[in-house]
C-alpha cells in the first residue's frame, strides 16, 4: 500500500513540476506548483513526518502560493525575458542544477539508514513540537507575537488612509 502511494505521489510531483516548467501561462505554472507541493507533503507523510507534511501544505501550498499568485497578478510579466538575457538564465540554471545534483548525491551518500515508512521519527511529531514550543522555546515563541504585532502595525501605518483624504 505504502509503495503504491509512494509511486502515486512521486509521479504527481514529477509530472506537475514538469507541467510547471513547460506551461507558458504563469498562473498555470503557479497552480502546477501547488500540486507539486501537495504531493511532496504526501511523501513526507509517508516518511513518518506528519508535521512536515502538514507544514508543507499549509505554508508552501497555502501561504507562499497565494503570495506568488498576487505577484503574478500585480506585475504583468508579458512576453517574458529577452533572448540576450535568456542565455544567461540558461547558463545560471545549468550551474545551479549541477550544484543541486552534487548536494543531493552527497546527502544521499552521507545519510543514515532511511527510517522505515510509516514509522514515526523521534521529535518530529506535532505533539512533541507543541510541547517544546510551550516549554523550552516559550520565550522565542512569545517574541514571535511581538514581531507579528510590529509587522502588522508597521504595515498599517504606511498604508492607512489619512484624515481628510
Amino acid at each position: 500500500m505504502a509503495i503504491l502511494l509512494f509511486f502515486l505521489f512521486a509521479a504527481f510531483a514529477v509530472g506537475s513540476v514538469l507541467g510547471m516548467i513547460i506551461s507558458r501561462n504563469q498562473a498555470y505554472s503557479a497552480l502546477f506548483l501547488v500540486v507539486a507541493f501537495a504531493s511532496l507533503g504526501g511523501l513526507f507523510g509517508l516518511l513518518g513526518a506528519p508535521f512536515m507534511a502538514v507544514v508543507q501544505i499549509i505554508i508552501y501550498a497555502g501561504a507562499i502560493m497565494v503570495l506568488f499568485i498576487f505577484v503574478i497578478m500585480m506585475i504583468h510579466l508579458g512576453e517574458g525575458i529577452s533572448a540576450e538575457k535568456k542565455k544567461w538564465t540558461i547558463a545560471a540554471a545549468v550551474f545551479m542544477g549541477i550544484i543541486l545534483l552534487a548536494e543531493i548525491v552527497f546527502a544521499v551518500k552521507g545519510a543514515p539508514a532511511v527510517p522505515m515508512a510509516g514509522q514515526e521519527m523521534a521529535g518530529t511529531s506535532p505533539t512533541e513540537i507543541g510541547r517544546l514550543l510551550f516549554t523550552k522555546y516559550l520565550y522565542p515563541f512569545e517574541i514571535t507575537s511581538i514581531l507579528i504585532i510590529a509587522a502588522l502595525v508597521g504595515a498599517v501605518v504606511l498604508i492607512k488612509k489619512r484624515e481628510g483624504e
Partner: peptide
C-alpha cells in the same frame, strides 16, 4: 541564544522599516 537574538533583531528591524517611511 541565537534564536532569541535573531527574533529580537527582527522585531527591531521590522519596526525600523516602517519608522523609516513615516513621512509618507
Amino acid at each position: 541564544h541565537f534564536i532569541v537574538i535573531f527574533l529580537g533583531l527582527e522585531v527591531l528591524s521590522v519596526s525600523s522599516y516602517s519608522l523609516a517611511g513615516l513621512k509618507r
